[in-house]
Design a protein around this nucleic acid. Structure first.
Lengths: 235, 235
DNA sequence: ACAGGCGAAACTTTATACAATCCGCGCCCG
DNA sequence: CGGGCGCGGATTGTATAAAGTTTCGCCTGT
């Protein structure tokens, strides 16, 4: 038998250099440190992570498939800039999928998972209390991803990961005020519904939570043009 | 040595060699010519398409993200082998998404689209009449993709493309009898409902259509173990 | 004769070199 | 003085070569 311990599948991401690049860039986008339209030069990223362009390139291509990076031929890679139409589609898809996800999450709920959710709520509250906007927005997205992981449905999880990443860009582009990206209060209510295994309440609260997020956006196409112009000039 | 006559015109996909590879392999998988577990060697594919391994590699990575190819580290790329659990997830996701898709398709239905659907039904019937199983299974999947394109929702379309490709592998692995993969009759009924803009009927028929496909599968995990074992021994 | 280990071949992975393309800037011309 | 044109730098796309890993065959020892 093989004496060497072989990491069976592509599970460990940290050991893979490509995954480290991908997750680093993803985290930067989810924390609103990389703005839509920012150019992601291959040499530049390669320098940062001490990797060759080959690896950077594969990482960027994965991000393209996740919908948060665009590659223009012979031009390079850029952080994606979702249009208002994209935004509407993303949130419609989330309103369709996430109530079902939370439903399954209740089926799979164990004390360990409940604790995990509770701990996450604490982290969210702490980040909000100390005014750490970057951590707040990241944790808000991670809450939804956590519920999807809980549901155990890998297909839904994959879809939702993509939707969450795009949502982060959308919120950055189209949020009206400086309201928190994702009300922590709603998350508390959802966790409460999961704990009591009240599927109906959980679905309803998830749905209204998503509606409220979308309601805080300003999705007129004119606004997109304004923002786009402003961004170009600012750059 | 290959045709250097590549005019600088950006033809849609044909000029992109990576896309040509990706679509070629995808078509082979959707037509059940490439079986689950088949090794996809880089040199082998590169030879076929007259491309370098670099391009083959990027194409394969895209297919990994579509869920129909697995890459095992230092081992190579293989056609994916969905488990029964994967199969249940895929069909549950389809039952969730496709009724909504057909709903939107009705909103976007135009005479041109109706004609397109009608033409597709004719192709399906012809393929079935002449006993062309490969064309049949391909066209069955394409019908669902066509409806998704009709809906105009690019997010749903992307999700469904992935689900359809995986479904093709699932049907190949777990179909009980040699029943046609996707009853043409159901498609006829769905198109009729779209033509009359009867959303309720369309949703119901799409749902029962998907249920029937799944009902024709044999998704016991024991079967999966047998198959998996056979593969390990055979390899 | 069979089990076990060594070695070579084939493949994937990674890095680097080369070619093609695009953008910016200066020059020339109207 | 303004606009079009062409050249140079920079960046991406592609191919090829070097490096590491796995697998298979053969050979030896018992």
């Amino acid at each position: 038998m093989a004496a060497k311990v072989r990491p069976k599948s592509d599970a460990p991401d940290a050991s893979d250099r490509v995954s480290r690049i991908r997750e680093g860039v993803t985290a930067a986008i989810l924390e609103h440190r990389l703005l839509p339209g920012t150019k992601l030069g291959e040499d530049e990223i390669g320098e940062i992570y001490g990797a060759s362009r080959t690896l950077v390139r594969t990482a960027l291509q994965q991000l393209v498939h996740e919908g948060i990076v665009n590659i223009e031929k012979n031009r390079g890679a850029f952080v994606a800039r979702p249009t208002p139409a994209d935004a509407r589609e993303v949130f419609e898809a989330r309103r369709l999928i996430e109530p079902t996800i939370v439903d399954h999450a209740i089926d799979a709920a164990s004390p360990a998972w409940i604790d995990r959710l509770q701990q996450h709520l604490t982290e969210e509250r702490e980040a909000e209390l100390r005014g750490d906007a970057r951590a707040s927005v990241r944790l808000s997205g991670e809450f939804h991803r956590l519920v999807a992981e809980m549901s155990g449905h890998s297909i839904y999880l994959g879809f939702l990961k993509e939707l969450i990443a795009r949502s982060s860009l959308i919120i950055l582009l189209y949020r009206r005020h400086d309201t928190p990206a994702c009300g922590t209060d709603h998350h508390v209510g959802i966790v409460a519904a999961i704990r009591t295994r009240d599927k109906q309440a959980a679905r309803v609260q998830m749905l209204s939570h998503l509606r409220e997020i979308e309601a805080e956006l300003f999705l007129k196409d004119s606004a997109a043009d304004e923002l786009r112009l402003a961004d170009v000039l600012g750059a």
